[in-house]
């Protein structure tokens, strides 16, 4: 289970997250929607301390970390219990696909190379790229790179997977292959938080939908309820406009 409590984030005097509370149960898939600049990516990135929240606490798997006073060990613990998939993939350019997936296992978890390779090969097979294992990222399409990114995030067997607009940089015809991998990962019982603009996909894959704007959670509910019968007018506006587009 993952719980965020009263997450605040300031950039200078700009208040971008205004006390966010969010609880995600084990195996739950939560989609965070909202217009650009609503703070949804910042929220996601504050979970694994790529951004340090100004205040608030993050609890994953019973370990509560206070954002303001987190130690190096706290941060590392959070990073090991989260897997991140980036909008721009951010695969390690100097490493081959297999090494990209293995690196966290060999260098952070200190598994033997043989064991790490075994785990990584299984994951690459799952995302359909076992035959690309000895390619460099530059030799793959965007969709393939993102699937490697997902395998890399899964490698550390995290408590929760964080997706930061995983399909926003992809050519339209490559979006589906990535979405279907994410769906498959979701169906295997992984806990996931997905920041996305793909509303149809959010509706299909998410158990719960959180709508954010201006650094606050405007409304949250089950995917079904949010898309068919949102309570707030602003949610209705956003979802209907975006669905029509």
């Amino acid at each position: 289970m993952i719980q965020l409590q009263q997450i605040h984030k300031y950039y200078g005097s700009q208040h971008v997250l205004k006390g966010i509370d969010l609880t995600v149960g084990k195996g739950e898939v939560v989609a965070i929607l909202g217009p650009s600049g609503s703070g949804k990516s910042t929220l996601l990135r504050s979970i694994n301390f790529l951004e340090r929240a100004t205040s608030g606490s993050i609890t994953i798997n019973g370990r509560t970390v206070d954002a303001a006073s987190a130690s190096k060990q706290d941060v590392l613990a959070l990073r090991l219990s989260t897997g991140m998939v980036f909008q721009q993939y951010h695969l390690f350019k100097n490493l081959k696909v297999l090494q990209n997936v293995m690196l966290g296992l060999t260098d952070v978890k200190k598994l033997s190379p043989a064991k790490a390779k075994e785990i990584s090969t299984v994951l690459l097979e799952k995302v359909g790229l076992k035959d690309r294992m000895n390619h460099y990222p530059s030799q793959l399409s965007g969709g393939q790179q993102q699937r490697v990114g997902i395998a890399r995030a899964l490698a550390l067997n995290p408590e929760v997977l964080l997706f930061d607009e995983p399909t926003s940089s992809l050519d339209p015809e490559l979006v589906d292959e990535v979405l279907s991998v994410i769906k498959q990962v979701a169906s295997e019982g992984n806990t996931m938080i997905i920041v996305t603009h793909e509303l149809g996909f959010a509706r299909e894959v998410a158990d719960r939908v959180v709508f954010m704007e201006d650094g606050i959670v405007v409304e949250e509910g089950t995917a079904e309820q949010m898309f068919t019968n949102p309570l707030k007018e602003r949610t209705r506006q956003f979802l209907s406009k975006a669905l029509r587009a």
């Binding site: 694994n48 790529l50 990073r79 991140m84 980036f86 951010h90 100097n94 966290g104 890399r152």
Partner: peptide, 26 residues
């Protein structure tokens, strides 16, 4: 690219590991 540092942070690599394995080779 900044993203290389972020990806390394996200999987829990230390600063030294990030430098040696990712940043310096690039």
């Amino acid at each position: 690219d900044r993203g290389q540092f972020e990806a390394a942070d996200a999987i829990g690599l230390s600063r030294t590991q990030t430098m040696l394995k990712i940043i310096l080779p690039q």
